[in-house]
Computed example of a mutant assay.
Amino acid sequence: TLGHDPLGGVRAVAQEIKNSVRRATGLSCSIGVTPNKLLSKIASDLDKPDGLTVVTADDVASRIWPLPARRVNGIGPKANAKLEGLGIKTIGELAAAERAWLVERFGKSYGAWLYDASHGIDDRPVVTHSEPVSMSRETTFERDLHAVRDRAALSRIFTELVEELAQDLQRKGYAGRTIGIKLRFDDFKTVTRDHTLPQATADARTIRRVAGECLKRVDLTRRLRLLGVRAGTLEKGSGDAGGATRLRASEPAAPYAAEERELPLFSDNGE
């Protein structure tokens, strides 16, 4: 049919993804639609911002080969410098090299990968789901806060972060064995501390208690710009949600008594 676009369906799906991202976040994004992950990464950068680029296997020579070799995800500064020293600056020039020649100069594994990558070959599967390694909540303050003079505000904010983290864990059916904190000071120095428990937890009170112990290991004399709490070493579907109970994804975070919720995490000496 005159004017028929055989890739029209693919373009429509990609455009709907872009539309969904904009509706959900108000942000634009660029999408590359190609036969594999490596080419899609390159293609997504071709028409930024807010681009939608379709590259087929037949387009590799015209669209990909003229690009600098460093545009291939996996060719870092050192490898790129070595390639330039060998007279190779573009992906096309890399594709013109013999596989054996590349293996001789870059090793069996990386040399073979360079050859395949330059020809647009990438057989890695697309993974659409993976288990989280950690979950965290953090906030940056509108003004820098002092551990002593702003103790009540910091304690309240930290408790809220802990409660939000506990709710995230329980809603998604996880518990964490490692509880950590993240602090950024007014000089932009970032400090983290963590502690690993014998049993995973998704209980807000337990997380708050352990996080408070972590805070005691930090010098809090400088003002704070950012405060955060993290749960790592996650376990799926088991853990301590308040005592000896087993975690259920629908289980609510254990509530605080009013006086417990406002318990200061920062002492008068700034510890």
Rank of each mutant, 00 (worst) to 15 (best):
T1W: 08
D5Q: 02
G9V: 01
V10W: 06
A12Y: 06
A14T: 08
I17N: 05
I17V: 15
A24Q: 07
G26H: 01
V33Y: 08
V33G: 10
N36D: 12
L38W: 02
L38Q: 03
L46F: 02
D47G: 04
P49D: 09
L52D: 09
D58P: 01
A61D: 02
S62G: 04
I64G: 06
L67N: 08
P68I: 03
A69Y: 05
R71Q: 13
G76E: 09
K78G: 06
K82Q: 11
E84D: 11
I91E: 06
L94T: 05
A100F: 07
A100K: 14
F106C: 01
F106V: 00
G111H: 06
G111R: 00
G111D: 03
A112G: 06
S118T: 01
H119L: 02
G120S: 05
R124F: 06
V133F: 11
V133K: 15
S134L: 08
S136L: 04
R137K: 15
R137V: 06
T139D: 13
L145M: 15
S155H: 14
I157N: 01
I157F: 01
I157S: 04
E160A: 15
V162D: 14
D168L: 13
Q170C: 08
R171G: 12
G173E: 10
G173K: 10
R177N: 14
T178N: 14
G180H: 00
L183D: 15
R184Q: 04
D186G: 13
D187Q: 02
V191N: 12
T192P: 13
T192G: 13
D194G: 11
D194Q: 15
L197N: 12
L197F: 05
Q199V: 15
A202F: 04
T206N: 00
A211H: 09
E213N: 14
D219L: 00
G228T: 03
A231N: 03
T233M: 15
L234G: 07
K236S: 14
G237M: 03
S238H: 14
G243C: 07
L247N: 04
R248G: 08
L263F: 08
F266V: 11
